[in-house]
């Protein structure tokens, strides 16, 4: 049994090593540092700059988290602290169900709803009202954009953050709530100053879980972001996340020299970023727990 445990623990290093091995031919022609910061992607000319894909992933993830974090935390707080039990029991199952919907369905929903909505409503409105902001300007008329990816991802992240955060908040002992209320705290003072403080580390963990879900998500994003290898300058620009690059191209155009290595390198970047972020979040979490205790 310990051997099995060891094997599972070593899975990530093994995967990283295998990816590194396959990506090595690419690193032989250009150092990884330059590949990461280069923005030209022309496989036929042997130019493999990953910056557009990294930027695409970051844009989409950032938009998703900005949308999902405040909304789902408020939702979790309401469900855990304010909603009557009947309502909570009514609402929780559909929220948990959201987490189980295949991502391709989310992608379809994005194509059928979000993309046209951005094209017909959001983008024209932003052009009129907020055109002076570079972030809001765009000449992309399709609606396939990092914003669409971010919205679809945000909705996918909702249930992850809501159900984890709600459980963490409800795990705070009732005696603590009563201690605050007995001193004359209002409900919101009690939630803000005592319950959330106690649950902080768990709430952070819930957000990190959502982040991990968003960062590596492939199918739903790929269907709505437009997949143009460029550096997005506005939320209405199309983007091309790393995961979409791999999924779209692996198995195709493999006759191009080094193409296979380039995709392996992309996978390696994805893996490293997720591992590093998770590790950083864990450290932050440990410190948060230490401070709360």
């Amino acid at each position: 049994m310990w051997a099995l445990t060891l094997l599972v623990a070593l899975l990530v290093p093994f995967m990283a090593l295998a990816l590194l091995e396959r990506a090595r031919p690419l690193f032989d022609i250009a150092p990884p540092g330059r590949l990461l910061l280069a923005s030209e992607w022309r496989p036929l000319k042997q130019e493999f700059g990953f910056l557009p894909f990294i930027a695409g992933t970051l844009w989409v993830t950032l938009i998703a988290m900005l949308l999902a974090t405040p909304l789902s935390l408020l939702c979790a707080i309401y469900l855990a602290e304010y909603a009557p039990r009947r309502l909570r029991e009514l609402v929780k199952p559909p929220i948990d169900l959201l987490a189980g919907i295949p991502s391709v369905v989310y992608g379809l929903w994005g194509v059928l709803t979000i993309v046209p909505f951005i094209r017909e409503v959001v983008a024209p409105w932003a052009r009129e009202a907020l055109g002076f902001l570079p972030l809001m300007r765009s000449d992309n008329p399709t609606g396939y954009s990092v914003l669409a990816g971010g919205i679809v991802l945000g909705v996918m992240v909702f249930p992850v953050i809501i159900s984890t955060a709600e459980e963490v908040i409800r795990a705070v002992p009732n005696g603590l709530r009563e201690a605050a209320l007995a001193l004359g705290a209002t409900r919101w003072q009690m939630v803000k100053g005592v319950v959330l403080r106690r649950a902080l580390s768990g709430v952070i963990a819930a957000v990190v879980l959502g982040f991990s879900r968003a960062f590596g998500e492939t199918m739903a994003v790929m269907m709505v972001v437009g997949n143009v290898p460029q550096l997005p300058r506005s939320i209405f620009d199309a983007g091309y996340p790393l995961s979409a690059l791999i999924a779209n191209n692996y198995g195709e155009m493999m006759s191009i020299p080094l193409y296979d290595s380039a995709l392996m390198a992309a996978a390696l970047i994805l893996l490293i970023v997720v591992v590093v972020f998770t590790a950083l979040a864990r450290i932050a979490l440990i410190q948060a727990i230490r401070r709360a205790a």
Partner: peptide
């Protein structure tokens, strides 16, 4: 004021 059966120090 109410003092409870078991002490619940606030997380601070």
């Amino acid at each position: 004021g109410l003092l409870a059966q078991r002490p619940f120090p606030l997380p601070m």
